[in-house]
Design a protein around this nucleic acid. Structure first.
Length: 123
RNA sequence: CCAGGGGGCCGGGCAGCCGCGCUAUCCGCAAGGGUAUCGAGGAAAGUCCGGGCUCCACGAAACAAGGGUGGCGGGUAAUGCCCGCCGGGGGUGACCCCAGGGAAAGUGCCACAGAGAGCAGACCGCCUUCCGGGCCUGACGAAGGAUCGGUAAGGUAAGGGUGAAAGGGUGCGGUAAGAGCGCACCGGGGGGCUGGUAACAGCACCCGCAUGGCAAACCCCACCCGGAGCAAGACCGAAUAGGGGCGGCGCGCGCUUCGGCGCAGGCGUGUUUCGCGCUGGACCGCCCGGGUUGGUUGCUUGAGCCGCGCCGCAAGGCCCGGCCUAGAGGAAUGGCUGCCGAUGCGGAUACGGUCUCUUCUGGGAUACCGUCCGCGCUACAGAACCCGGCUUACAGGCCCCCUGGCGAA
């Protein structure tokens, strides 16, 4: 079954409440979507770089997801990859290993602690 | 060969595997799948100019306001772009640079320094006169001469000095010293003639020169400009809830806690009165508009690209023939591997070039070129309605023309 693409903002926001696995090049969010097919989305913010850098990162993430999701993806779940600055032009082999690891951890239900509402030095 | 100037172009290639998007086609009830073609740039960028296109506004035009442009002629759909020419400046030269209209229309500014900066000015200096000192000729007098000093009177704008700029420049004459005071040349101004479409240039004549700079200060002059942008704009439109109008008919009154209740009325039953049941305010048809969400269109055939020919110094224009070349929408054109190419660094090699000796068999020298191996590097950057420009970014590489110098002929 071919994974489809997330396109609604609400889905991205919902994914934020799901499992969260952080790796050096990216952060993976996994959120069950209740019966729909396996889906994926990619978020690369303007903080990362200009459009060229962002789109290249999206293309490489997309290539990774197409390679790994059919075997290692989690059924009936949304997968969202968030780009990090250290992921710019990161070695493709490393990214592949890291995504495989992240997917297996998510499949076991292990995630990193979610981001707190008071993350930064606010007093 | 070295140094330099101008212009144009490319910016990885091939193969394999795994993938993506549009379209066409085939299979399938459908979901989906198979096959095939095609699929980023010279800047797609910045969004700085100019247009097309769309909607809005508007009777035409002019004026005003605001903004822009600024030598002349041409090119163009148009431009602030491009080409040619003119003027000024720089360079030995090829060439390069210029915001290059008006300063006797007016207003304003010209800091600091300096004596003086816009009806110029006199600090040092120079000169004359005056006063004083000694000296020389004479005689220690009168008179004369050169010289020094002065807080005196005047002349001067050559020289020094200040400054971004000091009221033309150089030379000769002239003078007490000087000065366009006079003269020659250069510069400037004036009207004229000639050439040129024009900017402008040339020529002779006249005027000793009479009014500096800043207009990217206000301003004046000439010319140009309506606004917003494809998220422009057009169309389709399900379910649910609900709004407005018209019509079909009898469509009313009172109370209300706004849920309804009562009466009148209507329909059915019934010969009628009375009674009972239902209804008591909906229903139906048509039209219009709004919201949410979605879809279609605009959307790629165009100031298009390629080739031959013609016109033009050129930018460019014209004729004929041929071609169709991305159309996405959380946004496709990607990832990996191998070989090759280009390039940098390091290493190996005397096999081939190269140099040299020679008994003409060959010997020797050299890492400059070739060859081989390893490692590194392979940029700037991603269409979003479409064009024409400008500007900026860019690993590396190729081609053409020209200039100066050196060498050879």
């Amino acid at each position: 079954m071919k994974p489809s693409v997330l396109s609604r903002r609400a889905d991205f926001l919902a994914a934020n409440r799901g499992l969260r696995v952080a790796r050096p090049g990216f952060v993976l969010l996994v959120n069950p979507n209740g019966g729909d097919a396996m889906r994926y989305g990619i978020t690369v913010t303007k903080k990362i770089g200009n459009a060229v850098v962002r789109n290249r990162m999206k293309r490489r993430f997309r290539a990774l997801l197409r390679e790994l999701l059919p075997q290692q993806g989690i059924a009936s779940a949304d997968h969202v990859l968030i780009g990090r600055e250290t992921g710019i032009e990161r070695d493709f082999g490393k990214l592949r290993e890291e995504l495989a690891m992240a997917l297996s951890r998510a499949a076991q239900g292990k995630g990193d602690p979610p981001r707190k509402n008071v993350p930064r030095k606010r007093r």
